[in-house]
């Protein structure tokens, strides 16, 4: 029991279950799942599907945050990925074929990777604070996306492409399956290799990591590339779901949701130990919160107020521990500026 209370996934999970229960109270069929034409339907499936892009991006963000970084550019990368793939499809000679959809997705993903390389370069090689380095792409990225789409909302009609965000396979929405696959990829990438341990080591104690001979530069570079990859896939999903690329609004503020999911999931913004499962739970809490607000009949936009309260309460819960550790013992930490948490 004690270990259950101590486990940092316990409280996020309790919060998620409480939210689901609340919904069930207000809508008796909330938890019900039904099968129709071989597809699963229900509010839970909706939450999973609508939450998929946030989960994806939050997974990438988790690793970035674990290294004491942050990636503000993911929203812009979402827009760019959607813009590139939809523009490619719209301008291709065979806009409805599988090959076109595949090529479009591939180009978008490669573009995403390139943007991740760029972010990683600024942070790990040039040594710019992460928040500032990614701010550049956050600002310019939407412009680039609009440049690609020519300022239009580019609509496509390609069933194959549409299936990324809105299709079904094995009775489940494909977006959920993709997200699950990326989750598995992240888990394997970090736990089957030494990446996870080294990321945590760099995030927990950069000084000791350096003295142990860890090449932090490569590690940090990898997490930004992975974050951008996740954002690009989320961009495909979002644009495919509405069969159009909206350079202005696709993925707007999704970086904030992702950071929020990471924090709720128990990964500290000060870096160090991370939990991919926690992040997934965190992202679903945010999505369920949105759904709950709907269920309760409150205008959906007001969700933001609840989000603000959630952020504050999570941070305040995390704060005293951090404070006690830092304050009484060493009132004046002599960390050089560059080793401060980069936020």
């Amino acid at each position: 029991m004690k270990s259950l209370l101590k486990n940092r996934l316990t409280w996020p999970l309790v919060a998620l279950l409480a939210l689901l229960a609340l919904n069930q109270v207000f809508r008796a069929d909330f938890l019900a799942l039904r099968m129709q034409d071989g597809h699963l339907y229900g509010s839970l499936i909706d939450i999973l599907r609508n939450g998929a892009p946030t989960v994806l991006i939050a997974l990438g963000m988790t690793l970035v945050v674990a290294t004491r970084g942050i990636d503000l550019s993911v929203g812009a990368i979402v827009a760019i990925a959607g813009a590139i793939s939809c523009s490619y499809i719209a301008s291709s000679s065979d806009p409805s074929s599988l090959a076109t959809a595949g090529t479009a997705a591939a180009i978008a993903v490669v573009a995403g990777l390139a943007l991740g390389v760029w972010n990683g370069f600024l942070v790990s090689v040039i040594g710019v604070q992460p928040i500032i380095a990614t701010l550049v792409l956050m600002t310019a990225g939407r412009g680039v996306a609009q440049l690609v789409t020519g300022g239009q909302i580019v609509s496509v009609s390609n069933d194959h492409y549409k299936s990324i965000g809105a299709g079904y396979a094995f009775t489940l929405p494909i977006s959920i399956l993709i997200t699950a696959a990326v989750f598995v990829l992240a888990a394997v990438l970090t736990r089957r290799t030494a990446l996870g341990t080294l990321i945590e080591a760099v995030g927990i104690n950069p000084v000791a990591s350096r003295l142990a001979g860890i090449r932090a530069r490569n590690i940090i570079w990898i997490v930004y590339v992975f974050s951008a990859l996740c954002a690009a896939i989320a961009g495909l999903m979002i644009s495919s779901n509405v069969t159009a690329a909206d350079a202005n609004n696709a993925g707007l503020y999704i970086e904030m949701d992702a950071i929020l999911a990471v924090v709720i999931g128990g990964t500290s913004l000060a870096g160090g130990r991370y939990s991919l499962v926690g992040t997934v739970i965190g992202a679903f809490i945010i999505q369920t919160l949105t759904t709950t607000v709907y269920t309760l009949g409150i205008p959906p936009e007001v969700t933001l107020v609840f989000k603000a309260l959630v952020v504050l309460s999570v941070c305040l819960l995390q704060a005293p521990a951090a404070r006690n550790a830092l304050r009484r013992f060493r009132p004046a930490p002599k960390l050089p500026a560059k080793e401060k948490v980069a936020i």
């Binding site: 990591s209 142990a212 160090g272």
Partner: peptide, 18 residues
């Protein structure tokens, strides 16, 4: 020296892994 939040195992093999 220590990576405090990691296990004895992780700390012990850290330099070799690096």
């Amino acid at each position: 020296g220590l990576i405090g939040d990691l296990t004895v195992r992780d700390n012990l093999v850290l330099a070799m892994q690096a």
